[in-house]
């Protein structure tokens, strides 16, 4: 490992803030800015987006001048790949498939985010969580979820 002369976390954070600031600023451009009596919807967003971009520049500048004090470390690629789609899957299927299958699938998918999870364990876990939630939320609390949705009707 060669000695770096900049702090990668600060540089990356600075760049992200600059990009976000520009993105927010860009989408606020179409909004009316207004006057000080009647501030338009674009007033605050534009000012704040400018401030965010400026802060991003400052963070980037300080990152380029300092040494890294801590490594970024390993990234949770597998975790992100299985975990993040789980709530999305639930959202996509809860109306069509219904609460029970949607929750089962989402839990099963999330379970594989850890390499320690054995397939039979994941299956047992998903079944247990689904059964518990169905009893508690659907039967006991009577929440208006359809347990099995129209996609399964035929």
């Amino acid at each position: 490992m060669r000695d770096r002369t900049f702090d990668p976390t600060d540089v990356a954070a600075g760049v992200i803030f600059i990009l976000l600031g520009l993105a927010f600023g860009f989408s606020a451009l179409g909004l009316e800015i207004g006057t000080s009596l009647r501030m338009g919807p674009g007033y605050a967003p534009l000012v704040l987006a400018g401030v965010l971009t400026l802060l991003g520049v400052l963070i980037l500048a300080s990152g380029l001048r300092s040494h890294p004090d801590e490594a970024i470390g390993p990234l949770a690629w597998r975790g992100a790949a299985f975990l993040l789609p789980a709530p999305i899957l639930f959202g996509l299927t809860v109306r069509g498939l219904g609460f029970v299958p949607a929750l089962f699938l989402a839990t099963l998918l999330a379970a594989f985010a850890s390499p320690r999870m054995k397939p039979w364990q994941a299956l047992a876990l998903a079944v247990t969580v689904t059964a518990f939630s169905t009893i508690v939320f659907s039967y006991a609390l009577g929440l208006p979820f359809r347990r099995f949705g129209p996609w399964l009707a035929q």
Binding site: G91, A111, S114, M117
Partner: peptide, 19 residues
């Protein structure tokens, strides 16, 4: 064990957010 706990957390959070 954490690998058992976190799928449960995801399941309940999904229900909570959706409800």
């Amino acid at each position: 064990p954490y690998h058992i706990l976190f799928p449960i957390i995801i399941a309940f959070s999904s229900i909570g957010v959706y409800s």
